[in-house]
C-alpha cells in the first residue's frame, strides 16, 4: 500500500492521459478536461500545504527569536492579503489590488532590475576571451547588447541586421538542438515515471 498503490495510480493516470491524446472522441476530450481540472484542484491543495508550511516555519522561528522582526513583517504581509480579500474582495480598486499594485509589483520589478547589475558584474569578471569559444560567446553577447541599445547605431547602421541574423540562424540552430534534447529527455523521463522505473518522487521512506 505504502508504495505500490501510488505507483499504480501514477501508471493508470499516465496511461489514460497518454492514450486520450490519440482520440478525437467527445468522451476522450471530456475525460482529458476532467482530469486536468482535478489536477488543478489537487495542485491548489498542494500549494496550500506549502503555504501552511511557510506559516508554521515562520511562527516557529519567531517563537525562537531568530530574525524575529523580519519574519513578523513577512507574516504581516502574508496575513494582510487574505484578510483584505475577505473583507473587500479582489476586484479592481479594492485594497487587495492596491497592495498588489503598490507593494508587490514595484518590489518584484525592482528585484528583477537588481539582477541587471549582478549579471553585468558577473560577466565583467567572467567574460575573458581566454579561448576561441569564449571569444565567440563574448562577441555574440556584445553584438546583442550593442544592437539593442542606441549606442550601437554610432558604430554601424547595419549592426541590428547582423545581430538579427545571428539570433535567427546560428543561435536558433543551437536553441533548437537544446529544445530537441529537452524534448527527448522529458519524454524518456515521463516514460520511466509511468512504467515505474523512476521512483524518486515516492521519497525515501517505506
Amino acid at each position: 500500500m505504502g508504495r505500490k498503490f501510488p505507483l499504480a495510480v501514477c501508471f493508470l493516470f499516465g496511461v489514460v492521459m497518454f492514450i486520450q491524446y490519440f482520440s478525437q472522441s467527445t468522451a476522450a476530450r471530456n475525460l482529458n478536461q476532467t482530469i486536468l481540472d482535478y489536477w488543478q484542484i489537487v495542485f491548489a491543495f498542494t500549494l496550500i500545504v506549502g503555504v501552511f508550511s511557510f506559516f508554521k516555519n515562520n511562527v516557529t522561528h519567531i517563537s525562537r527569536g531568530a530574525d524575529r522582526p523580519y519574519r513578523v513583517v513577512g507574516l504581516i504581509g502574508f496575513c494582510s492579503m487574505p484578510i483584505l480579500a475577505l473583507i473587500w474582495g479582489i476586484k479592481a480598486d479594492t485594497p487587495f489590488m492596491w497592495m498588489f499594485e503598490n507593494v508587490q509589483a514595484p518590489m518584484q520589478s525592482t528585484v528583477f532590475a537588481l539582477l541587471a547589475f549582478f549579471v553585468a558584474s558577473a560577466s565583467f569578471r567572467g567574460f575573458r576571451a581566454r579561448s576561441l569559444p569564449a571569444a565567440v560567446l563574448l562577441i555574440s553577447a556584445l553584438l546583442m547588447l550593442l544592437s539593442r541599445s542606441n549606442i550601437g547605431g554610432y558604430f554601424s547602421s547595419g549592426l541590428p541586421e547582423v545581430a538579427n541574423w545571428v539570433r535567427d540562424y546560428p543561435s536558433m540552430a543551437a536553441r533548437r538542438a537544446i529544445l530537441i534534447g529537452i524534448g527527448l529527455g522529458s519524454l524518456t523521463t515521463s516514460l520511466r515515471v509511468i512504467i515505474g522505473i523512476e521512483r524518486t518522487w515516492l521519497g525515501g521512506e517505506k
Binding site: 493516470f13 499516465g14 486536468l36 489537487v42 515521463s190
Partner: peptide, 30 residues
C-alpha cells in the same frame, strides 16, 4: 505515506500529458 497517492496522480497524469506534448512541440516541430 497516504500523501503519495495525490502525488502519484499528479506525476502520472503530468507525465502522460508530457509525452505527446514534448514529442510534438519540442522535438518534431523543431
Amino acid at each position: 505515506s497516504l500523501s503519495r497517492i495525490p502525488i502519484g496522480f499528479m506525476i502520472g497524469s503530468g507525465a502522460g500529458v508530457a509525452i505527446p506534448a514534448m514529442l510534438y512541440g519540442r522535438t518534431l516541430r523543431q
